[in-house]
Simulated scan of single mutants.
Amino acid sequence: MKKIIKKTLFIGLIVFLLIQLYQPARNLGFEQDLTANFTRAYNVPKNVEHILRTSCYDCHSNNTNYRWYSYVQPGRSFMESHIKDGKKDLNFYEFGNYSKRKQESKLEAIVKQIKSDEIPLSSYTFIHKNAILTPTQKQDVINWINKTKDSLSSKN
């Protein structure tokens, strides 16, 4: 019985080491169209910009701040899946390229998800405690988005 356990652990270790060789491409793109970046397309106050960069940009931009654990599989693949899905849903670096209607829709969705505590994801804030939004931060972002949304509506 001990021989089977040792053999199983050895095989498990070998498999674990082999999967470390697979490292998906990193989300380290650079801003190509600076005017499309959310913070450049709108007059974002510094406090709101800081909140967004801390709590949102790792998954919703073209540039993720990778930490040490991002080098360990299978966590890396899980992380890349979240980033891919996040960017598909909303990419702050490309926000200025969205139609005005889509921008309004995305802003409304952000407010709704902040109010319902859906964002940032708990799987993200579990490790990134600084990304947890305080009630004041939530209100700052919501107030700024509502003001911005109103200005978008008046331009249409």
Rank of each mutant, 00 (worst) to 15 (best):
H82D: 08
K6C: 11
F78Q: 15
P24M: 08
D150W: 00
K6V: 12
P74G: 04
T125H: 01
V15M: 10
S77N: 11
E118H: 01
L17D: 06
N43C: 01
S154P: 02
K112W: 02
L152M: 12
Y42C: 00
N146M: 05
N97G: 07
N143W: 00
L133P: 00
D140T: 00
G12S: 14
Q23P: 02
S153G: 03
F16R: 06
I114H: 00
T54L: 04
D140G: 03
V48M: 05
L107S: 01
L107W: 03
N156I: 05
Q139L: 07
S70D: 15
S122P: 00
L107M: 15
H60P: 08
Y22F: 15
E80P: 05
K88I: 00
I5Y: 04
L9Q: 09
L152D: 10
I142H: 05
T8K: 05
E108W: 01
E94I: 06
S123A: 05
K6L: 14
F10Y: 09
T54I: 00
T134P: 03
I19N: 08
K106E: 13
L52R: 00
Y66T: 11
W68E: 14
T54R: 12
R101S: 11
T134N: 03
N97F: 07
E94Q: 15
S154T: 11
N130W: 01
D117Q: 03
N91G: 11
L13V: 13
L17M: 14
S153W: 04
N97T: 12
L107K: 04
P24H: 08
P45K: 08
L133A: 02
Q113E: 11
G29A: 11
V15G: 08
V48G: 04
D58S: 12
V48A: 06
D89V: 04
A41L: 07
Y66M: 11
S81V: 09
S153Q: 15
P120K: 03
K102M: 07
Q73K: 02
K138D: 01
M1A: 15
L18E: 11
N91A: 11
P74R: 11
I14T: 10
Y66S: 10
N37P: 00
L34F: 00
D117E: 10
K46I: 07
V44I: 14
S70W: 10
R101C: 03
E80N: 13
F30A: 14
T39I: 10
E49P: 04
F92K: 08
Y69D: 15
L133I: 02
Q113S: 07
D150E: 15
G29M: 09
N62S: 12
K147H: 13
K88Y: 00
N146H: 05
N156Q: 12
Q137G: 07
K46A: 13
N37S: 12
G75M: 06
N63V: 01
A41H: 14
L28M: 02
M79V: 13
F38C: 06
I119P: 02
T35S: 13
T148V: 08
D89E: 14
I5V: 14
N130F: 02
K87N: 14
L133F: 02
Y22N: 12
S116V: 00
S105Y: 06
G96L: 08
F10E: 09
S153T: 15
I132R: 11
K147Y: 12
T39P: 03
K112E: 12
G96M: 06
V44M: 07
